[in-house]
Amino acid sequence: MATELHRPVSHDVPPAAGGPAAVRVAGLTRAFGGRPVIDGLDLTLRPGEFTALLGRSGCGKSTLLRVLAGLDREIAGTVLVPERRAVAFQAPRLMPWKRVWRNVLLGLPGRPGRAIAEAALEEVGLRERSGAWPKTLSGGEAQRASLARALVREPDLLLLDEPFGALDALTRIKAQRLVAELWQRRGCAVLLVTHDVDEALLLADRALVMRDGVIAHDTPVALPRPRDAGDPRLTALRSRLLAELGVDTPASAETA
């Protein structure tokens, strides 16, 4: 599936290069107070690919996601993203004054009916909470509602900013499985920003490590799904990624 690349975030559009892409970033720089957080970053995401972006806190991974979402435009360089994209943040960010189904429909063009919202809520297993106020949802339910709100837009690019970070361990496992299912069903490109290596290995086709304002490491995660966190083939990959993130493990010391 080729994604139409329109609506450039930046103005100088470069000649199209390479194969089909869901995101094309070239020479992206974003500085805060003169200090570049993203410094000449290049990145291409392929359509339908699930990519995990790892990095230590403050490395600029969330800034990159915000740039791709079009929320941060104080940038230099080229950023090409699909027209239809959606974000799920770490906090669900539901409008507390709108019932769940109205939250899901918020921002959709035209006058979509409640049925559309309920279909999306059904997909995340939340149909029965359609008429509830967000304050009555549990943390996991709110996060699922936020996912439904992202998915109802039928995005070509789904941006997930540590969406499981605030969930408790059990809820997180369920939410991760849900995201994996939804992605397989929808087939959109996903960029998952996380600091959790296990999460990245569980969900992604490709893992990126961001460091010093660029993509410092890029590795495919070519393992059959569904994956198990205890899979021995993941161990070496995990150690390598942790080493890239600056965490030494006994295993990485051996392989290094």
């Binding site: 929320l71 974000v87 906090a91 960010r93 409008m95 918020l106 921002g107 709100r149 837009r153």
Partner: peptide
Amino acid sequence: EQLIEAGASLGL
């Protein structure tokens, strides 16, 4: 501010 940003990300 986060809600405004969420609204903007929804294309409002």
